[in-house]
Simulated assay, not measured.
Amino acid sequence: MRPLPLLVCDDSAMARKQLIRALPADALFEITQATNGLEGLAAIRAGQGAIVLLDLTMPELDGFGVLAQLQDDGLPCQVIVVSGDVQDEAIRRAKALGAKAFIKKPADPLQLSAALSALGILIPLNSASQSLAEYADGLPDVSFRDAFREVANVAMGRAAELLGRVLGVFIKLPIPNVNILEVGELHMALAEAQHGESLTAICQGYIGGGVAGEALLIFHDAEIDTVATLLKTHLDESAKLEMLLDLASIIIGACLNGLSEQLMINLSQSHPLVLGQHCPIEDLIRINQRRWKRTLAVEISYGLEDQDIRFDLMLLFTEDSVPRLQKQLDLLIDG
């Protein structure tokens, strides 16, 4: 039998490595990897993607764009979407654009095997739990930053699914930024999130298993009334603040729970607190400058489709947390 051309299209080396490892060991594939949608389309056009395992959130061209182009060009391939964006609307859109199946990240080997079998690919019954040792040489190298970005991506998607249900809108997901920031760089990142607007900032601390930090969620004051309208409520000043605290609990809580589950660390969360209300970013930095030191920062900006609204979330891990995070990520990377 000739190997079946299979394309793994995902910007994360961690995700590609996990997917290749999740493939049934006894199936005969010729595997190609692509790091964005444009690379993926080029590989498919070159005959390297009879089967495509496709991420949705990617640079250059996202998964929705790839699916739309495949339809427009009539390219002969079968697509299984494997994504951290688990919103019902994301699943509906992907399937409407021709995806044969949708699997949430990180991909379960049994679900992947079942999806491949549904495409007519013969999978031995005992192969789903085996490792793909013969493809070990083709597995990508995964850095700490890439691995943590992928873990954050999955957690971010779970938070978006919950937020979208609460607000009744589709949440546009970014690619998370992960960086070690000195205090001055953190201030610059916060200033960039403001864009000259007054804001309300809410923080929530977390600790557990050798990891500690705090989440910072920034709401732009000009958007708060629109958020209240989406929730079909008319609020006074006190009730608006309560609404923001509730939203912060939803977004931050879901994100941290997603991280805890993947990293196998139990993170206890404090109650959300208001750091600053209706203030410029300079005041927020000045008030809190002693608490923000050198930190591992995850930056996520949720956008609401058809609304000029975004929620800027930063997960700030203490420098002392990095060795424990590295250890847990190594377990995921090396499997």
Rank of each mutant, 00 (worst) to 15 (best):
S260N: 07
S268V: 12
Y302W: 10
K232F: 14
T295H: 08
M264I: 09
F219K: 03
S249K: 11
W292I: 11
G276Y: 04
I285M: 06
A201C: 14
G210C: 09
G210I: 13
R286D: 11
G303Q: 14
P272T: 05
Q204V: 05
V227T: 06
L273F: 10
I300S: 05
L267P: 04
M264A: 15
H271E: 08
P272W: 04
G253L: 08
E223D: 11
E305P: 02
V322P: 00
A222M: 10
V227M: 11
H278F: 11
G213S: 07
V227S: 00
A254T: 03
L217H: 02
E282S: 13
I309Y: 03
L247V: 06
I250K: 01
F317N: 04
A212K: 13
V298W: 01
S260Q: 07
R291W: 04
V322G: 06
E214N: 13
D320I: 09
L230F: 06
A254Y: 05
L275H: 06
Q277E: 14
A254L: 07
Q262F: 05
L296K: 04
P280A: 06
R286H: 10
G213T: 06
S238Q: 14
R310C: 07
G209N: 08
A248I: 00
E214H: 12
L315Q: 08
I287W: 13
L275A: 08
E242F: 09
P280H: 09
E305F: 07
G208E: 11
R286I: 00
D236K: 08
L304R: 00
L316C: 12
Q328E: 15
E299K: 10
Q269T: 09
N288P: 05
Q269C: 10
V298E: 02
C255M: 12
E282M: 03
D306N: 15
A239M: 14
K240T: 07
R291C: 07
T233V: 14
K327C: 13
I287Y: 10
L217Q: 01
Q307C: 09
I202G: 05
I252C: 01
T233Q: 12
T318D: 15
Q326T: 15
K240S: 09
L231I: 05
A215Y: 01
E261D: 14
T229M: 08
A239R: 15
R310D: 05
L315F: 06
L304F: 10
I285C: 04
